[in-house]
């Protein structure tokens, strides 16, 4: 696949045309969770609810596994996938902690200390050079 300039930014998936096309049905499924009746139907039988959407098997499994980074890789957008988090009763900060591989208290402490530093987080090429 063609390398794009933003592919060099570490730990980041830009929601570009490629991601948007791949994730259309996944994101529209997420959008459906804004209605209380749909949230109830999803929670009652997640697999059956997902089967109503023409999503790929990998996308469905990422949702079932709550693989938040996996959903993004498969075309999910964070403002859409966070609607699954809301359905689960999770806050934005809780899923941010999961996506960055730390506990929520560790993540909250990092934010209170000024957040994740930009130093060392600008570029994959820079990281590879060390």
């Amino acid at each position: 696949m063609t390398e794009r300039p933003w592919d060099d930014i570490p730990g980041t998936i830009l929601f570009d045309a490629r991601q948007s096309r791949a994730g259309f049905h996944l994101n529209q499924f997420c959008m459906s969770l804004m209605k209380a009746d749909n949230r109830t139907a999803f929670k009652a039988d997640e697999r059956a609810y997902l089967d109503r959407w023409p999503m790929t098997e990998a996308q469905k499994n990422a949702v079932l596994d709550r693989d938040w980074n996996g959903m993004l890789a498969l075309g999910g957008n964070i403002y859409f996938t966070s609607k699954i988090a809301a359905t689960d009763g999770l806050s934005f900060q809780q899923i941010a902690a999961i996506m960055s591989g730390v506990t929520q208290p560790e993540y909250a402490a990092m934010m209170l200390a000024g957040g994740r530093s930009i130093v060392g987080n600008r570029s994959r090429k820079e990281q590879a050079r060390g």
Binding site: G11, A96, A97, M99, Y107, M110, G114, R116, I118
Partner: peptide, 17 residues
């Protein structure tokens, strides 16, 4: 201002920027 909500780089803050 600076923020990233997604992926392993979530929580990025760049006060200088």
């Amino acid at each position: 201002m600076s923020h990233q909500l997604q992926g392993p780089r979530a929580g990025l803050i760049n006060a200088e920027f």
